[in-house]
């Protein structure tokens, strides 16, 4: 589905600098005091507890705002993205605009590296619904490019997850846009 590219060049540089610096030092590495170690352990435990409560709050928020019986979430993925540079996406559900999203360079990079964006989370009652996504950006040869894709879905009592996919079509040298139900 989503392929990756090479490691960022800075990564190794940064990592090795650390050890190179340590390697040159003639004095032994500084060992933290017992008090600092103890404090550090307590801080690590605190962080762990904070993360645990944070997760519980996330879950609670989702349960309260988007109960599973009505929840619908729309994700967006970009496979490579050489034929399409994403600028924005408009999402309509049942002919009503539910989100307009403008992408930063950093977000596009994150998508190109395999990240999947949770574009929209909302509630829909059970039954038939129509999803329309409008993709705006630059196509091959830097031309303005605007394409829409549509999908009819049936919402049941289970959460509904949809993925908007932008995939490079190597044969056509064009981007393909699709919506997939999960």
């Amino acid at each position: 589905m989503t392929r990756i590219k090479g490691l960022p060049s800075w990564l190794g540089l940064v990592w090795v600098l650390c050890f190179s610096t340590l390697g040159w030092a003639t004095e032994p590495a500084i060992t933290p005091s017992h008090e600092q170690k103890n404090l550090d352990t307590q801080i690590q435990d605190l962080k762990k507890e904070v993360l645990k409560i944070n997760r519980e709050l996330f879950s609670l928020e989702e349960e309260l705002l988007f109960p599973s019986s009505t929840q619908v979430a729309v994700f967006l993925s970009l496979d490579i993205g050489e034929f399409f540079k994403l600028d924005s996406v408009q999402l309509k559900i049942n002919d009503k605009v539910v989100t307009n999203y403008l992408y930063t360079e950093r977000e596009v990079q994150a998508l190109a590296r395999g990240g999947v964006q949770r574009l929209y989370t909302g509630n829909l009652k059970t039954g038939e619904h129509e999803i329309v996504a409008l993709f705006i950006g630059k196509g091959p040869e830097e031309r303005d490019y605007k394409r829409a894709t549509k999908l009819s879905i049936t919402k049941t009592l289970k959460p509904k997850f949809l993925e908007l996919q932008i995939v490079d079509n190597e044969n056509a040298q064009q981007p393909d846009f699709a919506v997939q139900e999960w």
Binding site: M1, A110, V116
Partner: peptide, 16 residues
């Protein structure tokens, strides 16, 4: 490759 929306969602934030 990413074959899971929730995992991909976490990666999206990680890469940023």
């Amino acid at each position: 490759s990413v074959k899971n929306l929730h995992y991909g969602d976490a990666l999206f934030h990680l890469y940023q």
